[in-house]
Design a protein around this nucleic acid. Sequence first.
DNA 1: TCAGTGTCTGACCGATCGGTCAGGCATGCT
DNA 2: AGCATGCCTGACCGATCGGTCAGACACTGA
Lengths: 195, 195
Amino acid sequence: MVRAVPGTHGEILAAAARQFTVTGYRGTSLQDIAREVGCSKATVLYHFANKEALLAELMAPAIDVLRDLDDRLAGLTGAAAQEVAAQGFVDLAVRFRREIAVLRGEFPELLCQPAFAHIQQISDRLRDALAGHSERPGARIAALVLLAGISEACGEFADITDDDLRSALLTLVRRAVEPVDAPLPQPPTTEDKDS
Amino acid sequence: MVRAVPGTHGEILAAAARQFTVTGYRGTSLQDIAREVGCSKATVLYHFANKEALLAELMAPAIDVLRDLDDRLAGLTGAAAQEVAAQGFVDLAVRFRREIAVLRGEFPELLCQPAFAHIQQISDRLRDALAGHSERPGARIAALVLLAGISEACGEFADITDDDLRSALLTLVRRAVEPVDAPLPQPPTTEDKDS
DNA sequence: TCAGTGTCTGACCGATCGGTCAGGCATGCT
DNA sequence: AGCATGCCTGACCGATCGGTCAGACACTGA
């Protein structure tokens, strides 16, 4: 969420979040943001070094959580990795659905920016985990479709509560993911998903 | 330097398709396209009324198939609609994966253009059909995630054949879609694309 | 030979973009 | 009073965008 900071800095951030979710990052000009806040474009650039810095500050909380999920996935394999990836990503997507909607479709271009240097690798690892680290095309395809689809879609259900959306998405992922047929190399430390 | 080739129109179209898939519609300038073709920007605008017309001609075949699918869905309900929607959309997504990749993320903005006026309604009906015309949030969410995810992802599997991608996606959709509890009113009499 | 036609181009246009800069204004400290 | 600091602004910049236009060039049929 956009932190509710009083003052111009927070107002700019909030306005940018609103505009970005409607017209996208590229489709929103600094002029647009300034107009909504009621200040000049120069004021926006006084509070933020440039447009990219504005986006980076907006996305920082979501990126932190994504990095945390990546850490938790390290070393996990098979069904355990699948379950952690599913729960972690669904939770992240629901909590930060507005922030994710900002990136709608502009992910590839935005990933080139320095502030988002490692996101691509993290999301690749996330996709691999969701596929149970399987090389089967079906597993890879399902994982990518789910990640992309959830990212794309979760911003469109503003009328659904976080809890409802989370449980619906988690149900969907568990049903859609290709099960890992290979037995777990190590017993899962967390609770099994069907016991 | 200037090649009086009668195929310039097609060359421009092909170059535009390549550029759009790499950098998107908005991210590709007429200058970029002209440079790849080896002509001037004015030549591009001699063959196409404007940038939008270029995109429209590029997308026309895919849109025709989408419209055809929409016609076939008219009147169908429940599981029959689900199955036709699933097969039809997966087939469309695979066959036109390059064209769909062009729209990557720019769908909302592009839908505002006159050439794509009815696409939004068609895709809404497609989503409803895939949800089995159910009002349950879970069904609506699953349908949207699948449609968005397939659209987003199908362009990224250039190394997978059409047949393999199609069967993998169809398996995924059938597994992921919420089943309609109402019995089939009729066995699916799916007559495929008529020639 | 010449007018007509289709193809193509450089020069140019207004609009908009992200970003810079010098300076105005209020406030508060010394 | 004098000065520093933080916040804000209008004016401006170079770059790039989609699009226009008059005219150059090659080819054609009469």
